[in-house]
Design a protein around this nucleic acid. Structure first.
Lengths: 243, 243
DNA sequence: CACCTTTATAGTCAAGGTGACTATTAAGGA
DNA sequence: TCCTTAATAGTCACCTTGACTATAAAGGTG
């Protein structure tokens, strides 16, 4: 329970530090990308790590995650507040940081394709990486990243989350590519259309029925994210395995 | 990131306490029950709360959760290690505990119907409560409990988790009652049988085809939990809404 | 400017899963 | 012995889905 024993002295033992770690995903060029920062000091100096940082004394973990997300991407706080950010799980192995006891609350964030982070300060060492071609990350961040990828893949099945990877107006082909990229499979285009369009509230056509021209084939209709959040029945991935 | 700034002094500021809170569920008499402990001191003296406690300096949150679960139920550690225990999420509102900054990692545990906790010490004030008839709990435990209930309900849809509520040998009627109790709906018996029996690895018949006699109607065949963990395709609840 | 490639969109068809039911079996209780 | 209760067997129509085929409308190429 959240109950301190009587006479408990907060300063009596070596304290826990509480941090947040962010797995920030985007789909870029048909590949899943993750935002990473390069560590400038030991341990793991020169390795890449998930962005994150300390939870401040008067903020919640979620606030800390949004603050860090804004700092690392160079986006404004108001832009960041519209992004999908979801708590993943908490990592608390006593030896996960060799310096001290650090308990970290991990978050997964989904963003549409963004330019390279060009903010000053923290964002200076941040870069997008292809999630399928990563070396070993610092700390237990490989594990966190893998858990985040699994979770996002599973949530695509039964939520309307995929639209969070898309800009405000998108084509069904772009939405399909989100599924294909995160799941690493190819989907049948007509069947995907049918499923998305017959699910009430998943997407809504942009008024005036504009089409995106300039591409290779027939111009595609544009849609916005709909009001629905859940997908009933779910859109199961082929040979579906969850975690 | 999990990186302490250079020269970071762990004792420099008021530390965070890290605790675990447990939502321990069982199905008893067709009703969902939760294990609660009565608080003996302020704040919330006299209120009921989720069992839990501090994460010790050299243990992970999961270890702490299992340790607390053993203490509060009076079960042995080896028994507890076989129970289903799953991390729910972390609650970190700065004001969730009026005394100090407490970040709590919540876990949900599923147990078969157990006797009243009769262990000494911590278990002395622990009791099973009908989850549908609770007053206000201490701290933010109402919210944690609601989140836990939602999560368990959702996981019944696409995992074989329901068997965790059952003893090692159970009838399909008992398994069905788990679903009905957690979801608060009635299911069609023949359809439920069909779904469970045609899902490979959900349950396996006990060898020798024993039957449970002594009840009112025709004796039911006994089953054990199978090797499968996921349910594909899922067993969706009627008018299904997830979270 | 025909023609080809590419992508979007429309539609068909069969298989499988599910919801709603009916029927039968086998126990305990009045 | 009959009635009630619960388990089990089986039926049938509907809906969703996977696998396909066909058509429309753009850009690119000779």
């Amino acid at each position: 329970m959240s109950t301190a024993p009587e006479g408990y002295d907060p300063h009596a033992f070596e304290p826990f530090a509480v941090t947040v770690d962010l797995a920030v995903f985007t789909v870029r060029g048909g590949r899943l990308h993750v935002l990473l920062v390069e560590r400038g000091e030991d341990p793991y100096k020169g390795h890449w790590a998930l962005p994150g940082g300390f939870v401040l004394p008067r903020e919640s973990a979620e606030s800390a995650a949004r603050r860090e997300l804004a700092e690392e991407t160079g986006l404004t706080e108001s832009t960041v507040s519209a992004l999908h950010l979801e708590q993943l799980r908490t990592y608390s192995d006593p030896d996960r940081d060799p310096r001290m006891r650090v308990v970290s609350v991990a978050y997964a964030a989904l963003v549409p394709d963004l330019p390279e982070p060009r903010g000053g300060g923290d964002a200076a060492h941040a870069r997008w990486w292809d999630a399928g071609a990563l070396g070993a990350l610092a700390f237990d961040h490989d594990r966190i990243l893998a858990d985040a990828h699994d979770r996002i893949g599973a949530k695509l099945e039964y939520t309307c989350l995929a639209t969070a990877f898309c800009p405000s107006e998108f084509t069904l082909g772009e939405l399909q590519q989100v599924y294909e990229t995160v799941w690493g499979v190819e989907l049948d285009r007509p069947n995907f259309r049918r499923k998305v369009l017959t699910t009430p509230g998943f997407v809504q056509a942009v008024e005036g029925s504009p089409r995106r021209t300039g591409g290779r084939g027939k111009p595609a209709a544009l849609y916005r994210a709909g009001a629905a959040t859940a997908l009933h029945p779910p859109l199961l991935r082929p040979e579906g395995r969850s975690t």
